[in-house]
Nucleic acid binder design. Structure first.
Length: 636
RNA sequence: GCCGAAGUAGCUCAGGGGUAGAGCAACUGAUUCGUAAUCAGUAGGCCGGGAGUUCGAAUCUCCCCUUCGGCACCA
């Protein structure tokens, strides 16, 4: 039997053999380091028989697959530990996730943080035992009966639902046996002690809120302790830049109980908001969007016509007036934009018609969904609808993508990925219309040179969508932009235009947003920059701080000239030490500190210190104003 | 909405049936100083809200609200 190794060499073995034996025949070191094998590209247990010619690769901790194996085994060790400590629980599933794993258990009593510590300790003991992990193939019915007999009804339910042609495998480690597809490490001792149980949470069985709630234990697992430490450090860094914390510290906004899910924007936060909004408005103007503004409150009949009443009624704020009319606070802008489109007769010559609104919407989001600025009940979208012909979908998509990537880049985000979400189970419109919409959007995305990740079944109820997910400074992803093709709403709300032929036709609506909502985007922006905004975005751009009161007059003049040049900043003439002032304003994340003392006053210069730098630069006042004015100009 | 945890000064937190605490911030005064903390003093609280137990509740019990971590949801 010929086994081809990654370096191209071919070795001959008697069949059957195993990955473990092959590794041993190559070298004792490799045998020890081996975690699993790849047979013709398929990841397998080291101990599983190999009985045919194959390309083979020994997987060690250096392989890209190692982390996944280790995390998967850590999940199993957790399940074993939990079962040993709490024999009355049922185990369910425990997959690998980003940075680690989780395991869902069924138990009437909630786990406590102390239980978490116990489980972690027991996991270490199981690893020390170094129990061999062995694969067994079982008959389906026997396996289901077995799990039923030991009180593991979730496992037997999983088995019953597995596809008929799937081999049922169980893995035995020590006294514990679990249903699993594998592959696994050869023994529990191979799991590095570089894991940590992170948190407890509730999670629905099979992800369905109609099902019972299980108890989920989250863990993080790595190949070595250094990696674990790095991960924990990254989490601490993320916590420091949490927009809720920075929002308070930088005096940008607050929330309070009387207005759950709505933002109280303070002076500085609102300045940031306006800066971003004004920037986006200029970009839209340049792209020939019409900016409109539509009613906050609209009679329910419009939402019934659009289909939103039926689908989202319980998530809408409503008001009833003396005349018994029911009004809905608009949860979105599209139906209103169609009303503007319907005013007067539109011609094909009017298309594409790009209608934009900084649309303030209200949605009664479920209480558990609220999260700082990221998910609120009152928010403003940078919304627009492009009314166009089918032929224009491609060119409008390309145009939009160019605008979007340019705006992201100006705002400091260079990387983003695009997801394509197609028809959901519950939807409006005929399948033929969906075919048409999906094909059109996909073709347009291809024409725009986008690399698409597929996101099946995640489209809006009226059409497929592209989702633009940007990556922030510490590698986290945030969905912000969207582009959705809609053939349904123009039909429902009876939007038409007169075609070249003189016939009335339905326009296509492209729903699109770049930031998504200002609230959410500003949260992302705050966290991306960790509050250290570039000058054009910073709500307070500079502070003029005196070294002694002898420089007060000059400092006042510097401040006045900067303000005259359009910059926003502070004057600090308090009788404190300059080092104290530097600290105060650095903590306040003011990007530029201009220190002026006797020397500067005499020479008519300023000493500039940038946030995050210990360097100082002495510049003539006029040059400093010139430099800072240039730097504070928005990109467009 | 569901599971779990938490709400004490502006912030971070201690206290745990018998008069409400600290550090930082704030305010007042002094300090005139060269790039991340000068000194002293003052003020600040219905201990998230409501009910109950008790001679007495910030503390114990119940209900509610909000926040946090997840799940579900996200037009």
């Amino acid at each position: 039997m010929a086994i081809t190794l990654p370096d191209g060499s071919v070795r001959d073995y008697d069949a059957p053999t195993t990955g473990a034996e092959i590794a041993a025949s190559i070298g004792a070191g490799l045998a020890k380091a081996a975690l699993a094998v790849k047979v013709d590209g398929e990841l397998r247990d080291l101990k599983r028989a190999i009985d045919h010619d194959a390309a083979l690769e020994i997987v060690t901790s250096k392989s890209p697959d190692a982390l996944e194996l280790v995390r998967h085994d850590a999940a199993h060790v957790l399940a074993q530990a939990a079962k040993e400590l709490f024999p009355d629980i049922q185990v369910t599933i425990g997959p690998v996730i980003e940075d680690g794993f989780y395991y869902d258990f069924s138990r009437s009593e909630p786990f406590t943080p102390e239980d978490l510590e116990k489980m972690e300790k027991r996991m270490a003991e199981i690893i020390d035992r170094d129990d061999p992990i062995d694969r067994e193939v079982w008959d389906r019915d026997e396996a289901a009966a077995f799990f039923e007999s030991v009180g593991e009804s979730y496992k037997s339910e999983i088995i019953r639902d597995l596809p008929a042609d799937q081999t049922i495998t169980l893995y035995r480690q020590g006294d514990w046996i679990d249903l699993c597809r594998g592959p696994h490490l050869p023994s529990t001792g191979k799991v590095p002690k570089a894991f940590k149980l992170m948190k407890l949470a509730g999670a629905y069985w099979r992800g369905d809120s109609r099902n019972e709630m299980l108890q989920r234990v989250y863990g993080t697992a790595w190949l070595n302790k250094d990696q674990l430490k790095d991960h924990l450090t990254r989490l601490e860094e993320a916590e420091k830049r949490d927009h809720r914390k920075l929002g308070r510290e930088m005096d940008l906004f607050h929330f309070q109980e009387e207005a759950v899910g709505s933002v109280f924007w303070h002076d500085k936060g609102w300045r940031l908001y306006r800066t971003v909004q004004n920037y986006v408005r200029r970009r839209l103007d340049a792209e020939h969007y019409q900016e409109v503004n539509t009613p906050q409150m609209v009679d329910r009949s419009l939402w019934e016509a659009s289909g939103h009443w039926e689908k989202f009624r319980e998530h809408m704020f409503t008001a009833q007036t003396e005349d018994d009319r029911i009004w809905a606070m608009k949860p979105m802008n599209c139906p209103c934009h169609v009303q503007i489109f319907r005013q007067g007769t539109k011609s094909y010559r009017d298309l594409p018609l790009r209608m934009a609104e900084f649309g303030s919407c209200l949605r009664y989001e479920p209480s558990g969904a609220l999260h700082g600025l990221m998910r609120v009940r009152a928010f403003t979208q940078d919304d627009a609808h492009i009314f166009c012909t089918e032929d224009q979908i491609t060119s409008e998509t390309i145009r939009f993508c160019e605008l979007l990537s340019s705006i992201y880049s100006d705002l400091g985000f260079e990387a983003f990925v695009v997801k394509f979400s197609d028809r959901p189970d519950v939807r409006a419109g005929e399948d033929a219309v969906w075919d048409q919409a999906e094909d059109a959007l996909k073709a347009a995305a291809e024409a725009a040179n986008l690399d698409l990740e597929l996101n099946p079944g995640e489209g809006a109820f009226y059409g497929p969508k592209l989702e633009f997910v940007l990556r922030d400074a510490i590698g986290r992803d945030w969905q912000c932009g969207t582009l959705q093709v809609d053939f349904v709403l123009p039909e429902r709300l009876d939007a038409t235009y007169v075609a070249e032929s003189g016939d009335r036709k339905r326009p296509v609506m492209l729903h699109r947003a770049i930031l998504g909502s200002f609230e959410r985007f500003l949260a992302v922006l705050i966290e991306h920059y960790a509050g250290h905004f570039p000058l054009w975005l910073a709500p307070t751009q500079y502070v003029v701080a005196t070294v002694t009161n002898e420089a007060d007059d000059y400092a006042t003049e510097v401040h006045a000239q900067l303000a005259q040049a359009g910059l926003v900043g502070l004057l600090d003439t308090a009788a404190d030490k300059i080092s104290y002032k530097v600290r105060q304003h650095s903590v306040g994340k003011i990007p530029v500190i201009l220190a002026v003392g006797k020397r500067e006053a005499e020479e008519r210069t300023v000493s500039i210190r940038r946030l995050g730098s210990k360097e100082q630069q002495s510049l003539a006042l006029a040059d400093a104003i010139h430099t800072l004015t240039n730097e504070s100009q928005p990109p467009a």
